[in-house]
Nucleic acid binder design. Sequence first.
DNA 1: AGAACTTGCAACAATGATGATGCAAGTAGA
DNA 2: TCTACTTGCATCATCATTGTTGCAAGTTCT
Lengths: 196, 196
Amino acid sequence: MPYPVRVSETTRAMRADAARTVRTILEAAERVLSRNPAASMEQIAEAAGVARTTVHRRFASREALVDAMAAWATRRFAEAVDSANPDTTPPLVALYQVTASVLRVKLDWGFAMSLALSSDPEVARVHADVRERCDRLFSRAQATGVLRADVDPGWARQVYYALIHEAAQSRDGDPDALAARVVDTLLRGVGTGQGL
Amino acid sequence: MPYPVRVSETTRAMRADAARTVRTILEAAERVLSRNPAASMEQIAEAAGVARTTVHRRFASREALVDAMAAWATRRFAEAVDSANPDTTPPLVALYQVTASVLRVKLDWGFAMSLALSSDPEVARVHADVRERCDRLFSRAQATGVLRADVDPGWARQVYYALIHEAAQSRDGDPDALAARVVDTLLRGVGTGQGL
DNA sequence: AGAACTTGCAACAATGATGATGCAAGTAGA
DNA sequence: TCTACTTGCATCATCATTGTTGCAAGTTCT
């Protein structure tokens, strides 16, 4: 028989214990899949301390689980970007704040955040939206003279994303220190400027 | 019956047509797996224009195929690094040449080159070896004043690898142009230096 | 030409992952 | 307390993938 509430179908009210289980599963899935994207539902269930059937009762399919992860992380991602007010704060400040803010999310939801091209169009929309805000920020940074004018904006964004990714991988310090390192490297590189 | 020659087992002389088939399969596997690392043997065989059984006759298992890809790409990787003489050429020149050289390989064997931690210890050894040569190069670059002294060498390498990866993904230009962009970004970043 | 090798095809076994369900025991909430 | 919900367990069906094999037809190389 179809189970009363399935996360992948509706978002109706849920009993507290069920909601807790869902969160536990999502967190376990992040932990497991970030280490091995091909891990089985069994491994995820085990990491969550839950029977495999429980996972299937909460998520209609593996795809539904992954979609839910993407949706969850994407919401936190969007909140993180919003909280830094990248459209109004001065570019350089915004750059630091967005970076630190996003890193805080990415440290916990690295795998889920990599699911930019989800089957859920809402997720894809948010990612595209963030990308645009990033480009606008870079535009303003260029106008302010923070960013070089001769740099391809697409390349700059790509490098920025990659640096955030690497910083999150390294986990070498708190989010603020990592953000400082990312922005410093993004803007100044690692060279002295001698011999160029 | 066990098949006469299996790439995963020996490297005995092979009939010309068989050698061609092996190459075709390796190239197809790279193409398919770089798009979808979870692709089936069937999909790889199809991309190679070959029956699935032929793939299994040449590679005892999926793992053996992947290992062969890693071994093949690793050899080309090592050759690429060697050809740039990173230990003797002046650091800045070496940086450009290594980058361009590695990019040429990575454009064709991106997936296979990502298999640094292969079950084949020889592959892991070569990757570790290259990493050390990279560190030595950066050391020399720091001594020459090309690289800033206050930058963590580990972070510099990580950024360098990431930039090469991004450049290879973008495929925006020939290897030399990409290398120039990578080195420029690595050393100078994308900022003007104003406001820092 | 002849031996050895290679390939595609068809068929098969083995395996592991996915997803569903009925049931009993336990828990949340009114 | 009573009801509805939730979970674990055992079980089942289905499915896709992997890996093997025999055979016939074609190719390489000598």
